[in-house]
Nucleic acid binder design. Structure first.
Length: 708
RNA sequence: GGCAGCGUAGCUCAGUUGGUUAGAGCACCGGCUUCAUAAGCCGGGUGUCGGCGGUUCAAGUCCGCCCGCUGCUACCA
């Protein structure tokens, strides 16, 4: 079956050292791990490499906020990542870090190749600099007024209102979200890769190499390759946590430049430790059989891995990926993972409550190799694990192993009516499905074998043979021997998905499962150990308790974790504290937990916002708008204003007319799709929660009165 | 509204390059069994394959339009 030994280098995307591993990440690592274990079981030389992604502004800022060095931060996160991966039986051959000597060296190698091929160019970039925080500000750390339409509070790169694209330096009245101060414009030289020079190569590689799913190739053709490719800014001026560029002092490689090179660095480190040759994996003219490079990534980082990265490899003359496997995101119970619902499940939280093998199996049963999102439906999870793994597979041994404890397997494999041979013949189809990353199909085929095996036990009724006395002993021995062989055969097929389970089966009978070939011939005459529980049913209570723990955790971490504002969440007003020891604390802390307090402000800050009582004179639907109602309000006297409020669906126009509301009266007018809005009606709402609740003053308040 | 994706049995999904009466698992109902760390076996579906139209000898499978849902983004000022 194994025609020739393939050399397969496999990577998963490098997790960022800014957060813990969650069940969404694990879709990728489990998928990759199954693929690698399958290849190894088939006798191929497969190497699974990964590393922590450690550089960039976000790490720098976080380390600053936590009052420790970047190195301390990434070391701690690395330890946590490794514990999580270990818990889920992810079998990396090597787990490196982008903050390593090997990576620095290889970044230099790639860099020189790009230089030598004339792919690097230099250009001045106007960027905002936060003098208080002492850093250049990435686009998302700056807000200000749009230079084109004058809309306030826009991000540094584009205006949400008019769609204008600009650089942060063009913003009117920019503010740093790090320090709240006004940043100054500084000009700095950045280095760019002129990707357009690689256009023809990228066209060819993405469209015709077979490395990409046609849907991805199509997406790239339609969104990027149809126009000249823009230059890629790959340097950042100091201060920056990363590697300084040797021939451009004061400049650092952008984190997305050094991250994929981490794949090369991990290879280099692994080779150094195991005596392999880096060249044999990545060089094109290696004397060894050409290696296959497989990258597994999520759809969010597609263009880094399908445009920038192959361009870098091509420029450096290195081996290109044979395949970039792209998967979708994880949803839980059909929705995006949510901290408040407890479905933002960290790896650690899961491990505290459930068996990792179960998630590995569930993901395998749902993964079909496509880029569709994968849904973790917790009820289905429970049903599938209990039915397939406990009821069908484990139960097969549970119901027959005891009859072989004394005798071992039959000395010759008995006649089983062709069952073992049939499942052995399925091996080719199962292997093909694994190879195509269509694990769902592989699991379906394997479970059919388990069904047939259980039907066999049922038909032979070994429990009756056991009672029938000595004359049936030989028949009982045969039946149990068949059942245990079928069980072990299934364990071989499941070994890539359930390595720990496979090892336990090996202990029960037949020794460690080391080769796919073991699915092709039955065992005979071997001893059988005493059967021990291999897997327990999932109880709905376990799921409940995991979700509850997850909610609690999310709250705690949100209370503790520094935000990018890096300002401690203190209670700042007496009012807040005096309300805490309320006699009957029946209100849950959910709303507050979902949205931590904003950074401290001064009374002057507050005074700048002019809140007034207003009366709603008229209210009407805006049929084309999903969320907006058009209100006409008055602060008293003749003048009226038009305000669009996002309360459609929560208030009917009729219920609003005549009532008093609170309005931000000095807010800059905003041109909206359906007209000019001249203020903002204040309402309460919870982060991530539905429901919008208008504020009303006590009776006696009059339009025009100010809130203070 | 823009971009992307999806709509097949109550639920989660398979349906390969268009080809015989459209499938699986779970759930549900009935029967059997009792060896099993409460599993197993047998039987049970009149599903408008979202709708309409088109191409074809033949469409869940290709094309067009429409409807609905999801994600990102936008009208939440």
């Amino acid at each position: 079956m194994t025609d020739r030994v393939r050399r397969i280098l496999v990577t998963s995307a490098l997790p960022y050292a800014n957060g813990h591993i969650h069940l969404g990440h694990l879709v990728e690592y489990i998928q990759t791990d199954i693929f690698v274990r399958f290849q190894k079981l088939r006798g191929h030389e497969a190497v699974y490499l990964c590393a922590d992604d450690t550089h960039g502004t976000a790490i720098m800022i976080r380390a600053q906020a936590e009052g420790r060095s970047e190195h301390a931060l990434i070391a701690a996160m690395r330890e946590a990542h490794l514990a999580d991966f270990g818990g889920f039986q992810i079998g990396f051959n090597h787990y490196g870090s982008t903050d390593s000597d090997a990576n620095r060296r290889l970044c230099g190698v790639i860099w020189r190749s790009l230089r030598d091929r004339g792919l690097i160019t230099t250009r001045d970039v106007q960027q905002l600099y936060d003098t208080k925080a002492g850093v250049f500000l990435a686009d998302r750390f700056v807000r200000g007024t749009c230079p084109r339409c004058q809309t306030a509070d826009q991000y540094g790169d584009s205006c949400e209102q008019c769609g204008a694209a600009y650089t942060p330096a063009d913003l009117v009245d920019p503010v740093s979200t790090l320090s709240g101060t006004r940043p100054e414009v500084r000009s700095a030289e950045h280095l760019f890769v002129t990707l357009e020079q690689m256009h023809a190569f990228l066209e060819e590689w993405t469209q015709r190499s077979g490395a990409l799913d046609p849907r991805i190739a199509n997406y790239l053709a339609g969104h990027f390759l149809c126009d000249p490719l823009r230059d890629w800014d790959i340097s950042r001026p100091a201060p920056y946590f990363g590697f300084e560029i040797p021939d451009a002092p004061g400049n650092y490689w952008y984190v997305w430049f050094d991250a994929p090179i981490g794949y090369l660095a991990a290879t280099s480190e692994w080779c150094a430790a195991h005596g392999g040759s880096f060249e044999s994996w990545w060089h094109r003219d290696g004397s060894a059989p050409a290696a296959e490079i497989h990258h597994f990534i999520g759809k969010d980082i597609t263009y880094f891995h399908t445009l920038f990265w192959p361009a870098m490899l091509e420029a450096a003359g290195l081996q290109l990926p044979k395949r970039v496997h792209i998967h979708g995101f994880l949803t839980v119970n059909g929705q995006k993972m949510s901290k408040s619902r407890g479905t933002f499940l960290l790896a650690r939280t899961y491990l505290d409550h459930l068996d990792p093998g179960m998630l590995r199996y569930y993901y395998a049963a749902k993964l079909s190799g496509g880029i569709d999102d994968l849904d973790l439906n917790l009820e289905e999870f429970t049903a599938k694990v209990n039915s397939d793994l406990v009821g069908k597979v484990v139960n097969l041994a549970s119901r027959t192993a005891r009859w072989l404890e004394q005798t071992g397997l039959a000395p010759d494999y008995p006649d089983d009516g062709g069952l073992f041979a049939a499942a052995a013949a399925d091996g080719a189809a199962i292997a093909e499905a694994y190879e195509a990353c269509d694990f769902a199909r592989a699991m379906r085929t394997i479970m059919q074998a388990a069904d047939r095996a259980n039907a066999y036990v049922d038909a032979e009724q070994p429990w009756k043979l056991a009672k029938a006395g000595p004359e049936s002993a030989a028949k009982l021995h045969d039946v149990a021997s068949v059942a245990i062989n079928l069980f072990r055969q299934i364990a071989v097929y499941l070994a890539p998905v359930l390595p720990v389970f496979a090892a336990q089966v090996g202990e029960l009978v037949g020794g460690p499962i080391l080769s796919w070939e073991e699915s092709q011939r039955p065992l005979a005459g071997q001893p059988v150990g005493s059967f021990r529980s291999l897997m327990r049913r999932v109880e709905p209570a376990q799921i409940e308790s995991m979700l509850a723990a997850s909610v609690t955790q999310a709250r705690e971490s949100q209370a503790k974790e520094p935000t990018q504002h890096a300002v401690p969440n203190q209670s700042t007003t007496k009012g807040t504290t005096s309300m805490e020891p309320s006699a009957s604390p029946i209100d849950s802390g959910e709303a507050l937990a979902a949205e931590p307090l904003a950074p401290e402000c001064t009374i002057d800050d507050f005074t700048r916002v002019d809140l007034r009582v207003a009366r709603v004179l008229a209210a009407e639907e805006v049929p084309e708008a999903k969320k907006l109602l058009k209100l006409t309000i008055s602060f008293g006297g003749e003048a009226t204003r038009t305000v669009f409020a996002g309360i459609k669906g929560f208030h009917t126009p009729e219920s609003l007319v005549g009532r008093l509301v609170v309005v931000v009266a000095n807010l800059a007018p905003r041109q909206m799709k359906f007209g000019l809005s001249e203020g903002m009606v204040v309402a309460a709402s919870g982060a991530g929660a539905t429901g919008v609740y208008l504020l009303s003053p006590d009776s006696g308040a009059l339009p025009g009165m100010r809130l203070r």
